[in-house]
């Protein structure tokens, strides 16, 4: 049973254009800025705009999570890391092996160009064209995603909670400052 919504309205188009250009613009800023703090703020902007794009795909739960987890939790981690290690690097772009890296970027650019060409060519395909019909009215909300998580994906869900626990312990262990030993010199643990 399909719930037909009216096609993309002017507001839909406007929202998509604004959000997509915000994502790409903030992404470019993130990659090109010299100061880590500026890049971080641009990354937060990119994450929020990306959450907006998720919402236009009617992935409401994921949109909220994107703001909470990325723009909230992960960015706080990044801010603390910047506070600890921030140094202005005189040479933001890697110069060693620049030729090889530039060749890699150009090759990948051609690859992505071809991929985009294929996507545009196949834009009439069902998967790439339909965004008007909602398969179920509660598509993408917390209840239906949660039902899926606790039925079909229960094992991956529990496994990922274990992975997060391991990652937190590993983070503490790796970032811990060296402990002074009784003999006075500092011993690296882990």
């Amino acid at each position: 049973m399909n719930y037909i919504l009216p096609g993309p309205s002017l507001l839909d188009k406007l929202a998509f254009i604004v959000l997509a250009s915000a994502v790409l613009g903030f992404g470019l800023l993130t990659v090109t800025r010299k100061s880590a703090v500026t890049a971080l703020m641009a990354l937060i902007g990119a994450c929020c705009a990306l959450a907006g794009l998720y919402a236009t795909l009617s992935a409401h739960f994921l949109a909220v999570l994107q703001v909470l987890v990325y723009a909230g939790a992960i960015m706080v981690l990044f801010i603390f890391a910047v506070m600890i290690v921030n140094r202005d690097d005189e040479q933001p772009i890697a110069l060693r092996g620049l030729f090889l890296r530039a060749a890699g970027v150009l090759g990948a650019g051609y690859f992505f160009y071809r991929l985009a060409w294929i996507v545009v060519r196949e834009r009439r395909a069902d998967v790439l064209a339909t965004s008007i019909t909602l398969p179920i009215p509660e598509y993408g909300n917390v209840a239906s995603i949660g039902r899926l998580l606790f039925s079909d994906f229960l094992f991956p869900f529990e496994a990922i909670s274990l992975l997060l626990l391991v990652a937190v312990v590993a983070g503490v262990l790796v970032a811990r400052p060296p402990r002074p030993t009784p003999s006075g010199d500092r011993e690296r643990v882990a």
């Binding site: 999570l65 987890v69 981690l77 890391a81 079909d152 990922i160 983070g171 790796v174 970032a175």
Partner: peptide, 24 residues
């Protein structure tokens, strides 16, 4: 959506371990 949710959790784990290595 579920897979994207897992990607998000993996990103959190990756950021925690990666930034710990950077600090170290």
């Amino acid at each position: 959506h579920v897979v994207a949710f897992f990607v998000m959790a993996l990103a959190a784990a990756e950021a925690a371990v990666g930034l710990a290595i950077v600090v170290s």
